[in-house]
Amino acid sequence: MSDRAANRRKRQADKRQGWTDGLTADRLGQFGIGVVLTLLVLAALGPVVSPYDPAEQDLSNRLESPSLSHPFGTDQLGRDVLTRLLHGARFSLGIAVAVTTVRLLVGTAVGLVAGYAGGWVDEALMRLVDTLLAFPGIVLALVIAGILGPSLVNVMLALAVVGWASYARLVRSSVLSLREREFVTTARLLGRSRMHIATRHLLPNVVAPVVVLATLDIGSVILGTAGLSFLGLGAQPPTPEWGTMLASGRNYLRQAWWLVNAPGLCIMVTVLGFNLLGDSLRDMLSPTQTAQMEEL
């Protein structure tokens, strides 16, 4: 009986904390920050300290299993897999940050305009948002990138185009609840321009939830980029992009298991790091804002 009562208390405490409870959200968040920082350092320094060149072929050492001189083995052209993964980290992180930034900026601008202007502008913009969200994201990005032609830039463009809509929705709903608040009404009565109200009074109040959404979004952008590259639309060989490396490794599943597993593991750890960071940032937000985020 006391066991059950203790469980019940625990459950109630857990509910307050959100889902990462029990494991202590803090510790997971710290782990996430640790992973992200480590990756940034590796991406910055790795290519400098690594003794090999990512494009250097050595056909006498093809498909060598992991060893001290090649900790992640070599690929079908004898290139050092670890070196290529380190170079790949630059692509993955760079692309993820760039795409997420574009999504954030476009989505925030659209959301601000829609929420503040109201009327037919709001109606038109929100139907556009609905239309974009009416497709499974990767499928639409796949089609857009495919029609534009296989290249890393086109994949980034496609991912940015399909992904800003949820930011617009979040910002719009925040603006709708903010615009009737006293400080906004006061500013309006003081005769401030719409631009002034939007940028000085509304924008600062939507920054926190938008940044949290962006942190949570980075993981899915990394998965999206890797997925599209895997399908052959993104970076083309010999670019050491993780998804592309995984795709070329699939022809050697029998002889060289490390060729698909090393990039796969890198993608997973990176995404995990950003997800944990995003989860703990979200838990730091106030409950009302968290509720808004969960609607997305």
Binding site: F230, L253, M268, L272, N275
Partner: peptide, 13 residues
């Protein structure tokens, strides 16, 4: 947590 972060094509291989 791991399942959410894992690329599904990797899991497939």
């Amino acid at each position: 947590l791991i399942g959410v972060s894992m690329p599904n094509f990797w899991l497939g291989y």
